[in-house]
Amino acid sequence: MQNPDDDKPNGVSDLARRRFLKGLAVSAGAAGAVSASGGAWGGSTLSDAFADFFQQHYQRMSADEIATTIERIERKAKRRYGVDITCANTPPQDGVVFGYAINISKCRGYRDCVHACVEENNLGRDTQYIRVVELDRGSTDLHHADHYYDHAEVPRPGKDYLPMQCMHCDNPPCVKACPVEATWTEPDGIVVVDYDWCIGCRYCMAACPYQARHFNWGTPEIPAAELNPDTHYLGNRPRPRGVVEKCHFCVQRTRTGRQPACQEACPTGARVFGNLLDPNSEIRYVLENKAVFRLKEDLGTEPKFWYYRDA
């Protein structure tokens, strides 16, 4: 369902590729040993380090290969954190394209969403997918935004608060930039990253006009007790060091019908999430009846992330 390649009659080249990779696997023992001994790649056993090294692109794996990979991911998480996680591979639903809208009049800058996201998505504790900035009322000039506001009380008079995260552009510059196709748009509109395919060149970070992508400069530090065990392959599974990650609209939740964690955490109801293809959805009502705008629309990125104000 996930692998368009599966349907294509390219079995021969696939087989050849795998044979070649197997050959490499045998001959590249030294590299694997280094990986394992360094602890750099998540404290794997030798065989897991091999399997990691030769793991294929998500879209190129067969169902069996994905199952084995997921098993390994769960095993590694157990070894690393002592926690039993489940790594789902829930496919996108038909007829669903996700969109998000934020009511700036309602956002009060509490940053509840930011921290709910950190917890839900097993972010390294120095990373935040969501950035809430403080702006002068009515302005959207990000160059005069305060990113680090820390008042005793928010909202401050005369200020607006604008949360930003991955906009899941319909024409994403980051996807175009990636030299190895480690990031792509899923059928439900979510721009995802295969953390096991990313080479860490960070060109996508240079390409993103919304500063939505984050790099694991070191191995992400997550307290084991706070690890969220409900994960998804393309979502919040524990990430290795040296790869890029970003908001994925809580794919582990939203593909099963749940709201993303930021929406759930928002105490003011400023966040509206839903299916853009469903004419009766809340998001469609907002888009059709509110004066919505998007950030940096002039760049042609077509974000699926809108903002509106109460009239």
Binding site: R108, G109, D112, R125, D126, Q128, Y148, H151, V154, W217
Partner: peptide, 28 residues
């Protein structure tokens, strides 16, 4: 009317680097 409240902590600098001065709002 919703009551104002203290926000949760803001952005963090990545591991291994000190937080730049201008990241800390006055009176923190």
């Amino acid at each position: 009317a919703l009551k104002p409240r203290e926000p949760l902590p803001g952005p963090t600098m990545r591991v291994g680097l000190p937080r730049p001065d201008h990241w800390v709002a006055a009176g923190q």
